[in-house]
């Protein structure tokens, strides 16, 4: 299966199909509750922007998860023109809080490229941001909180607000927008997507934090119909972090990709 950008579509058309828009700021930090889908959203967003011809770097700042981190999609990212900023060598297979110098570089220099920082889950994962606050200085950033209403602890508005406040407290940064990523994998229904969007709106009313966009897995639902049901912007994703029994291409399956040292 070709992973190359589909050249038969113009950039505008492909952007229109998957709906991932270029972010307002160059520095984009993605946080959220554990298992909310930060990595899948970050990887999809980065690849989509790269396919639109933009220079994109994706930094893996996950110090909380032992597997399913964006470093496991490094081959896919490179094939699609995204520059992955990840630890190299065998330390990338560890659960150590490795922070490589390029990440501080990303935050300090006013680069032309768009940077997406995929941060680990919960306030524990967001703790790494506090150590990068000095490097960030007065530079402008967007901090996106990913929300899945079908995950424990963020299945209510109260739970989501509490998670936002905890991450803000630990990181010392302010959440600037939410990304609604409500799903139940193959059991995702239109109702679950709409329920997530409603919750995003309710969180917004309570906190003043707007919803940036919502996500839908492309193969699951009729996105055109969904777009008619809500004013919320929808971006279409594909599932990249596949377990070995769902992946025909062993090099892109998890955790084989993690064991592939050719990248």
């Amino acid at each position: 299966m070709s992973r190359q950008p589909n050249n038969s579509l113009s950039d505008e058309q492909s952007m229109d199909i998957n709906g991932f828009r270029p972010p307002e700021k160059r520095l984009n930090i993605v946080v959220g509750a554990f298992g909310s889908g930060k990595t899948e959203v970050s990887v999809n967003w980065a690849i989509s922007l790269a396919r639109q011809g933009l220079a994109v770097k994706l930094a893996d700042l996950d110090i909380a998860n032992p597997y399913f981190r964006s470093r496991e999609a490094q081959q896919l990212l490179r094939e699609n023109g995204v520059v992955p900023i990840i630890p190299t060598g065998e330390v990338q297979f560890s659960d150590l809080p490795v922070l490589i110098p390029q990440i501080k570089g990303l935050m300090q220099h006013s680069e032309k490229s768009i940077a997406i920082l995929d941060v680990g889950g919960d306030e524990q994962g967001a703790r790494i941001l506090a150590s990068l606050r000095n490097a960030l200085g007065a530079r402008e950033y967007s901090l996106f909180q990913v929300i899945n209403s079908r995950r424990p602890f963020t299945d209510t508005v109260d739970g989501c607000v509490e998670m936002i406040r905890n991450i803000e407290r630990v990181s010392g940064l302010n959440v600037t927008a939410t990304i609604v990523n409500s799903h139940l994998m193959e059991y995702t229904t239109k109702e679950i997507i709409l329920e997530g969007m409603e919750m995003g709106e309710a969180v917004s009313q309570r906190t003043g934090i707007p919803v940036a966009f919502a996500t839908v897995m492309g193969d699951a639902l009729d996105v055109t119909k969904l777009r008619k049901c809500s004013s919320c912007h929808i971006a279409v994703m594909q599932r990249n972090m596949l377990p070995p029994w769902l992946s025909k291409n062993a090099q892109n399956s998890w955790p084989l990709a993690a064991g592939d040292r050719r990248g």
Partner: peptide, 10 residues
Amino acid sequence: CGGLTPSIED
């Protein structure tokens, strides 16, 4: 072993 899983092709 070692963290690798036999794939479908294997």
